[in-house]
Design a protein around this nucleic acid. Structure first.
Lengths: 200, 200
DNA sequence: ACCTGAACACCGTTCAAGT
DNA sequence: ACCTGAACACCGTTCAAGT
């Protein structure tokens, strides 16, 4: 395929990201290899290093796109229903998005930066956008609570949904089957919110 | 160090597992290498393959021990308090155990069996033991609910605690700081259980 | 300017040969 | 019986040399 300068810099970048994404979809992070990417796009291994600093940099770019994709899905959730309904819809959207390609989504938990290296600011920003969306939906459910309490509830709901999807796709802690995750997510959100509203 | 037959088969096995565990503690799954294990214990790489089928087999053995360790910690939780207190204590014990060596615990989520290979029965059994412990604590809290409902609640609580600890140690979805996980776990368990008890 | 491909320092795993 | 170490088929990354 690819020959010298037969692609623009941006095309080449996309080609690399597409090939890498396919490899991860097929075999997880362990299935990713710079040499195999190069083989698939018809360039030499060295070329990847003109475009990305290294594999970590490439993977982080893919992870950023995954977060963007989730953001986009969460933004599609209608804002007209009750807040409880919106919270449920958010949880379901998370489950749907991450279940479509579990190996890809799992990348975010399989891949670790070399110790010392921090997540770059552009990545943290994407994360903040998603969390803000959750907080915005949760906030109206707890009008007389502090912003710290709202943040805490958003985090707990987020962690709960993540926990269920994570256990549904884990090999080694698979206490939940993947087709059972949907009802669990609904139940967890509903019950937690009921507990929040309950007077003590 | 090690020279031909200077260790019994069992000693050699422990030596290998110890070295592997150290490597994972230091650098996660990515820090593990058969050759480096061999170097550290003073044997040749080939020796590992007399003791373990391959690295997956070795890693699975370590994962089994991690589950055993968690089981032991959960068994230490006193059975005299109220069920709510026991559920809280279980969640805290999980958090404490997994936070002591997050890289090691993370192994369970980083490591994936080659597609097609299933978790061996002895491993599944260990998992069942842990889950049973959680169900036993949750059951008295919902006396008029079906066994399916109890199982569901045990799974949701388990997933919730896992989700919080997971997000607290993830690089890429770290919405929770690790010192904040404790209060979140308490809050999640308390609020979920309150929601369960709430009449609709 | 862009890309190659050899080079370097690594892997996991196997297996004939040694003791 | 147990262990070695060479061999094979791989890695990520760099960088002089080519067009």
């Amino acid at each position: 395929m690819g020959r010298r300068s037969s692609h623009t810099a941006e095309e080449l970048r996309e080609l690399i990201l597409e090939a890498a994404t396919s490899l991860i979809s097929e075999g997880g992070l362990a299935g990713l290899s710079a040499r195999e990417i190069a083989r698939r796009i018809g360039y030499s291994p060295g070329t990847l290093y003109n475009v990305f600093e290294n594999l970590d940099d490439l993977v982080l770019t893919i992870e950023g796109r995954l977060i963007d994709g989730l953001s986009a899905e969460l933004d599609k959730v209608p804002v007209n229903g009750s807040s409880d309904e919106q919270a449920l819809a958010l949880g379901r959207a998370y489950l749907k998005y991450t279940s479509e390609n579990p190996r890809l989504w799992n990348l975010i938990f399989e891949h670790h930066l070399p110790s010392g290296r921090e997540v770059p600011p552009w990545y943290q920003q994407k994360l903040d956008v998603v969390m803000q969306r959750v907080e915005d939906v949760v906030a109206p459910l707890m009008p007389d609570r502090s912003p710290e309490d709202v943040k805490r509830s958003a985090h707990v709901l987020w962690a709960g949904v993540h926990g269920i999807t994570s256990l549904a796709t884990a090999d080694k802690l698979a206490v939940v089957t993947s087709d059972g995750a949907g009802p669990l997510v609904d139940h967890m959100i509903t019950t937690y919110l009921a507990g929040l509203e309950k007077p003590e």
